[in-house]
Design a binder for these strands. Structure first.
Length: 499
RNA sequence: GCCCCCAUCGUCUAGAGGCCUAGGACACCACCCUUUCAAGGUGGCGACAGGGAUUCGAAUUCCCUUGGGGGUACCA
């Protein structure tokens, strides 16, 4: 990379839907590229699709990028000298450029109606040939034009594509790519309402925003030759292009909403950590070597290079993300984890909306400690811990009866356990464990049988965090209340059986 | 249809002519640890799409076939 010119890259999403995983990966690679070279990362909102663009989607893009920790140096809410960073605020800039193209005959007014164009397309379909605009308006005389205008037709502006020759470019990721100009259409660059289309606006913006490297998805490869011609027609220098491999759904088609969760917001709500998602996304299309795949943000910035980006489409594999997320959760310190889990506990109404006292926070923290290594997603926390917060547990009393025990035996066992719990001097996990192991021995029971019954009594379920730590967190009073309730449930059960 | 891109385990990938009997990770299976579930440990299963060519020697280079993907808008 030449050091004279500062690297300037951009992310240019259109606010026509929630910010999704594919966009996030593109943003991440651009961001890493910029940060690696000490360059500038620009965020530009491509809102020229006035029908589908919505302010809330712009907000969603901003929120998602922030959540991921991908900060931009120029763009919405950041400002910058080369703005505005919303295309709809740059209409005069495009106008100036299209005027120049018109003046030099590199673009022309086209008066064809949708119906006329559709008829052309239909003809092409019938003849089984590739459709391309007939270019019937390319050489209209002034008279013809005023006549068409007199009919009230609102023209679009089309780009006059070279009719022969080839265009090529050296893709930073894929090497040389070439297209025959014959394949290229006289594309519309300004719509009849005066708003520029993507391929035109992007060229004007990338130039005026001094973008040096255009890093985007592979789906833009077919656009690149068109844009190169526009760059040239305008007398603009070309940026470098790099096309990232696609992110695919399990069916190997481009990842989209129909593959399930696709927006960054959804991943946040499911309880993925931004650092895990960033790490995972970095691995989709990029790799460092055959050893390391857990990277801190700083390592990614240091190690990232466009040369190590692959060309093959990558399936978004949620299982690996889950593993990574679990890994990151396990690495978090307890205070941090607890703070991150709290919103999920509140949403599940296990914890009230009010600010927690230090004691309360400490209590939640001791609960979180018991599930830290069992969590894959933060949203699982309420389901794993609800029994800590509930006063009355709902469960099938039959679960209290461990394998090879009768209800009567189970009841007697729990009664014994109750006595020893009461008698325990220090109510902590090591003591409880010691006491209960002793009890099992005294009763000549397998520890699993005793612990199993107790687990159900205390947690209402067969799968739970370690029993004695759970009891310790619950406290003697709560634990006894639950044991008592289990005994009475068993009583009812026994009554019913003998009746 | 036409154009373009791509092609190593189920998935993400390492591999830039001999280091490959193809390495790692996720997932899966087994075992160990263990009060359940996890976590952790050990081991296992598992791939160079096919065919030519170049070369003393190809996963690595070239060509063809096949397969997959993307594009083909007054969407971006």
């Amino acid at each position: 990379m030449s050091s004279e010119t500062k690297v300037r890259v951009r992310m240019a999403p259109s606010p026509t839907g929630p910010f999704h995983v594919g966009g996030a990966r593109t943003a991440l690679f651009n961001w890493l590229f910029a940060r690696h070279y000490g360059g500038v990362f620009v965020l530009r909102i491509e809102d020229t699709d006035v029908l589908r663009s919505k302010p809330e989607y712009t907000q969603n893009i901003v929120d998602s990028l922030r959540w991921l920790g991908l900060d931009w140096d120029e763009g919405p809410e950041a400002g910058g000298l080369l703005g505005p960073y919303f295309q709809m605020q740059r209409l005069n800039t495009y106008r100036e450029a299209s005027d120049r193209l018109l003046a030099s005959d590199k673009a022309y007014y086209c008066y064809c109606t949708h119906e006329e164009l559709e008829a052309e397309r239909e003809k092409a379909r019938a003849a089984k040939v590739a459709y391309r605009y007939s270019r019937r308006c390319r050489h209209l005389t002034a008279e013809q034009r005023s006549e068409l205008e007199a009919q009230g037709r609102k023209p679009v502006i089309r780009f006059a594509m070279p009719l022969d020759g080839t265009v090529g470019f050296r893709d930073m990721i894929r090497g040389d790519i070439a297209f025959a100009n014959q394949e290229l259409d006289d594309l519309v660059i300004v719509k009849s309402d005066g708003i520029p289309t993507y391929n035109f606006a992007v060229v004007v913006d990338d130039t005026t925003m001094e973008i040096t490297h255009v890093i985007r998805g592979e789906d833009h490869i077919p656009n690149t030759p068109k844009q190169i011609h526009i760059f040239r027609a305008l007398g603009y220098p070309l940026p470098q292009f790099g096309h990232l491999p696609m992110i695919l759904g399990p069916d190997r088609s481009k990842l989209s909403k129909r593959h399930g969760a696709a927006s960054i917001t959804e991943y946040a709500e499911l309880g993925y950590l931004p650092e895990a998602l960033v790490n995972y996304l970095a691995l989709l299309g990029w790799s460092y070597d055959d050893k390391q795949e857990i990277f801190t943000r700083a390592e990614l910035i240091k190690l990232f290079s466009i040369e190590r980006v692959g060309k093959t489409g990558a399936i978004f594999n949620i299982e690996k993300l889950d593993w990574l997320n679990g890994y990151y959760i396990r690495q978090l310190d307890l205070d941090d984890l607890t703070r991150r889990i709290l919103p999920f506990l509140r949403q599940a109404e296990l914890v009230g909306p009010e600010e927690l006292t230090a004691d309360q926070f400490g209590h939640v923290k001791s609960i979180v400690a018991l599930i830290q290594e069992r969590l894959k997603r933060l949203a699982e926390a309420p389901g794993l811990t609800d029994f800590f917060f509930k006063k009355e547990l709902e469960y099938d009393p039959a679960l209290l009866v461990s394998k090879a025990l009768t209800p009567m035996e189970a009841r007697a066992t729990i009664m014994q356990a109750r006595e020893r719990i009461v008698a325990t001097a220090v109510f902590d996990a090591p003591n409880l464990e010691h006491t209960m192991r002793e009890l099992a021995e005294d009763l000549a029971m397998k520890t699993g049988q005793l612990f199993g019954s107790l687990r159900v009594a205390v947690t209402g379920r067969t799968i739970a965090p370690p029993l004695f730590q759970t009891m310790a967190v619950l406290g003697r009073e709560q634990t006894l209340a639950r044991v008592d309730r289990a005994i009475s449930m068993l009583d009812k059960m026994i009554q019913k059986l003998s009746a």
